[in-house]
Design a binder for these strands. Sequence first.
RNA 1: GGGCGCUUAGCUCAGUUGGUUUAGAGCACCUCGUUUACACCGAGGGGGUCGGGGGUUCGAAUCCCUCAGCGCCCACCA
Length: 881
Amino acid sequence: MDIPSKYEPQKVENHWYDYWLQHNYFHSKPDDREPYTVVIPPPNVTGVLHMGHMLNNTIQDVLIRRARLMGKNACWVPGMDHASIATEAKVVAKLKEEGIAKSDLSREEFLKQAWDWKHKYGGVILEQLKKLGCSCDWERTAFTMDDDMSASVIKVFVDLFQKGLIYRGYRMVHWDPQAKTTLSDEEVIYEEKQGLLYYLSYPIAESKETVTIATTRPETILGDTAICINPKDERYAHLKGKKAVVPIAGRIIPIIEDDYVDIEFGTGCLKVTPAHDTNDKTLGEKHNLEIIDIFNDDASLNSHGLHYEGKDRFEVRKEIAKELEAGGFLVKTEPYINKVGTSERTKAVIEPRLSDQWFLKMEQLAQPALKAVLETQEVRLFPKKFENTYRHWMENIRDWNISRQLWWGQQIPAYYYGDGQNDFVVAETPEKALALANEALDGRGTKDRPLTLDDLKQDEDVLDTWFSSWLWPISVFNGILEPDNDEVKYYYPTNDLVTGPDIIFFWVARMIISGYEYRGERPFENVYFTGLVRDKQRRKMSKQLGNSPDALELIRSYGADGVRVGLLLSSAAGNDLMFDEDLCQQGKNFANKIWNGFRLLKGWEVADIPQPEASKLGIAWYGAKFQQALGEIENHFAKYRISDALMTIYKLVWDDYSSWLLEIIKPVYQQPIDRTSYEAVIALFEQNLKLLHPFMPFLTEEVWQHITERTPEEALIIAQWPKREAVDEKLIKGFEHASEVVSGIRTIRKEKNLPIKEALELSVLNAEKIDMDWDTVIAKLTHLSNISYVEAAAEGALSFRVKSNEYFIPISGVVNVEAEIKKINEELSYTKGFLQSVQKKLSNERFVNNAPQQVVALEKKKAADAEAKIATLEKSLANLE
RNA sequence: GGGCGCUUAGCUCAGUUGGUUUAGAGCACCUCGUUUACACCGAGGGGGUCGGGGGUUCGAAUCCCUCAGCGCCCACCA
């Protein structure tokens, strides 16, 4: 045979991917069919494929390929995210290596560098997705900074501004001193860090007294503008109205009272630094305190830091602690664990900082999105548990800080004129802005000459990356700029979104919000949250730990199909996936199993001879079994239980098809197979391939194309998903019984070392003759020369029982009577125990009266079956003794 | 500090509104097998008092309470 006995994925994967591309199967355009749309969660433009992407995109591809087979117009839109802060950080780092500081470059020069970088490294990940087999419509590849995408973002900004939902405000925001930008609340990750609680003693002005306060950040005393006590705290009553002196700075600050202060915590006395703490800011506003910002934008100290000017905050913390100690201001320190906000991207410790930023009011916008998930269920989350998380965030939603002090991204379309601070207009273009500005001046009557473009200065900041990706499902179809275009009307709303729960707020919730605001309807029907991919020891996969396998290397070793199967086999939705390469091996083994099933079929010689009865039965049974599995599979898909769907197919193909059906119809060595059976089994195999294709696209297409010559129109990728038909339960039940008989015979063969070559005889003692139909199948699978139905137990034979039937295999030589008796007794005691438990139920009047009829009937049947079996067993025992 | 979720065989997990055998699957494990698709295989087999305790019920892995352990999300306590 010229077909190799092992499937070699490396040799065929590229070929079939090119074939699919060449025939444009991935491309979609609107037509009469029902659309099925998925938009990819756009990976960062600089990203490299990791296990999370592999899982995520495999699931999307499974869904897309299945939809395609089901005759839908499947459209999977790929793309990339410009990832403002992450990309800018990378470009800055690259420039630094070349000895260039970002500040050395103009905005234009820097952006040129960034675009160069994007063109050079961007999109690597998309090429990697192709290796995985992802059937994206590559012609639609979008980038969040494409001209039309950016124009959409700007249009939305202007619109929201005009609706009064975007405002500029001087507020306490999260400052990332490394990236030198503000972040949204969601971009701050709180981490527990071991630190110290410093007890500092502040002298009271014009007295010898002191007051001790506790702080985790002694360096901020330089920005202190008050000390606060709780008015109810009697310990400090004598300090009311007095003033304190800030150590080192020597500044005199008031002692104020506010019941915000927790009497129990620390010393019950709080230092107030309005510039560097949100609560202190609130206190400051309430009590009219001075605001002293002691930091530069990189979190080194400024001139308010006195002799610490220019030094980093953490260095200052150590040094000032020493100085305070030397000056006698440090009372003591104690270890203290506190939650420190860090930047999601740069990992830098966040500083609360007051600054002018742009915000989007969320409360009103969030309402339809909240309702869609929790009330109308127009958008469904899988698994459901994320609805709680979603609800909590949406109900407590806060305004979104959308401005970033970066260059890589969409520049905020606000134009300042006049004093350059408070006078600004928001417009899509400078020209429109100019017109608006002149209008504004007219209105105020301050016009001495019309402004020109040179008088306008555009806001330096760019928008948060998520402010572009929240429009993704709409903007990829140009639905913002041309809301009535055919594409968006056809493809929107999309169907499924597959993503990680880590971006439920960043992205998912906001897309739902923008969907309702800009399309008046949901952006997608279902959201499938995958889990995190972890290693065997449950550790998160990360670059630092080096525990993340190289995705492409995995594909090389196990084949894309093997890796896909490996990933999916144990990834229940929303549960973390403990990745283990053994699973890929399992996937690879499965591919090989299917391959060899194909080899077997190809090896047969076909002849026009009568169809054996066993083959006919086997084929009919498998048809029923297939339908039964198909029903389960569709059910699993409907509930997004992708892993279970795959496992069902796995068992169907491996156990039912390969181990049972093929063995039943396999012709005797070197004999031909009858044409009827051959054609039927090919057809069944092809049905299997269809079910398998979404999971193992390469292998299945390869096999499909080799079963017989196919035109491009007959490719598997666009074949028809099997149709549901009624399941013939009788066939399934009958086969179940037959297979138990087969197992019984095989067990005896094994126990007595009877080689398969040696034909056996079987006699059956039964009342119902329920398995008579299956005689041919049983005989074929276990090599029986004869099956006879008898009225009495056979002498000198080994026996086993299935239900209430007893089976005998006469063998030459001695039958170990004792062993037989022992075996029967074990079975007997089990069955009796079982019967007892059933009878206990049945003799309970309340059970019989209260339980549903069906349940009672079932119990009665169980009892009857058990009794029949006991009778059989006892008879056998009597015969032996 | 608040909220949510999890705990079932060695591992990873199913177990759908309490009632189909005295709880299932895949992998792993053990035994046997160079049978003519596949040793990336076949046949057979062992393995769980469903985290502990209490309760509701005719009946609980499934509902309630409680304890323990784990995980996630949210939150301005210096």
